[in-house]
Design a protein around this nucleic acid. Structure first.
Lengths: 191, 191
DNA sequence: CTGTTAGTGTGTCATCTGACACAGTTTTTT
DNA sequence: AAAAAACTGTGTCAGATGACACACTAACAG
């Protein structure tokens, strides 16, 4: 919970009572490796904040292949936005890659927090804007960097993820095959 | 301006006076083909809403190649989020591909609107959430669909764009080369 | 109206990539 | 402890892609 407090602080000032109210609306939970957090056809009812471990967020393309959309690492706030905001079922899934500890903010509590008072309402708006901003930066990287460049960045920013998550899933995250990622690694090791 | 009113209505209810206040904060402008809307090193100060024509939003990768990030078409609300929200200079550029008519909401006016009253504040929050949701859906398509599938979708959803925008820019939007897009077109024409 | 620039269609070729195959290792389950 | 499942490293090969080249056409500016 302390980790979540620090995370929220990063988005700006928030008075003590409002911070406590916000944190008390979040529930701590955990999953074991291979447990599903979200199954296909489910409607996502919460926002999640991982404090330890890794989650695998993926979907399937028209030919049934698994497509990794994100590996969610600690200190990250995440949900399946369209399902959460519109309350429609999703076809995506989310599964624990390791044992995972996380906090959960359920939609009713999210709505209550938003309408509690002006400071909290502005705070949530601020977070939403910053997440939106971060998403577009991420999308830009996806378009403008090569697989190798993105792998190098992952190594720098998420060394633990690269260690603990199977190569085929890292490859899928980078939008390539296990074999091609292997070629990149071999090339980098040689240099 | 009527187009913008309809666009806003799509996000939910808004009382007449608030809608008028919102619309009166937007200014109508236009650009001619090849005019720059945003230059590199500029800090983006507005949100834009295109009513006619196409804008080219692009950046450059480390090797100097132009990367198309988006072709902005009518009925679309857009800005360079990280520059707008954080007021930092961007390296990206935005240029008119055709003559363009659009509305502009400057940041001071955006902030004023947000803090005007609760209804407007909630309305803006709602728009932000929906744009965030749409962005993630778009990102998912980017990852899970092939170039050909995305081209077919463009043909369906944006036939005018495909007609009016040069092939090399469409190709760049799809993350491929002019030549490969041509191969796809030939294949589709044969079938 | 005419020279210049921007855009299009298409062929060749070297390179990159994904799919498949298989052996060896680690992890999980019973 | 043994069997099964998951994961890793690596080679081969066919097919896809990007880079280059060039001719042709359309659009634009002086």
């Amino acid at each position: 919970m302390e980790m979540l407090r620090e995370y929220f602080k990063g988005f700006g000032e928030l008075s003590e009572p409002n911070m406590d109210l916000l944190l008390s609306s979040c529930q701590e939970r955990q999953l074991f490796k291979r447990d599903m957090l979200i199954q296909a056809n489910q409607t996502v009812g919460s926002i999640y904040f991982v404090t330890d471990g890794f989650l695998h967020y993926y979907t399937h393309n028209d030919f049934g292949n698994q497509i990794t959309l994100k590996i969610i690492s600690p200190n990250y706030c995440w949900t399946i936005m369209d399902s959460f905001f519109h309350q429609t079922p999703t076809l995506d899934e989310c599964k624990a890659l390791t044992d995972v500890r996380f906090c959960e903010l359920k939609k009713p509590d999210y709505l209550k927090i938003k309408s509690e008072n002006v400071e909290l309402s502005n705070f949530i708006q601020n977070i939403t804007e910053q997440i939106l901003s971060a998403k577009t930066v991420e999308a830009k990287k996806q378009s403008s960097l090569s697989v190798e460049e993105r792998y190098l960045e992952l190594l720098q920013t998420q060394p633990k993820m690269v260690q603990e998550v199977p190569v085929n899933i890292i490859a899928s995250l980078l939008g390539t095959s296990r074999e091609t990622l292997h070629r990149i690694r071999r090339r980098l090791a040689a240099a």
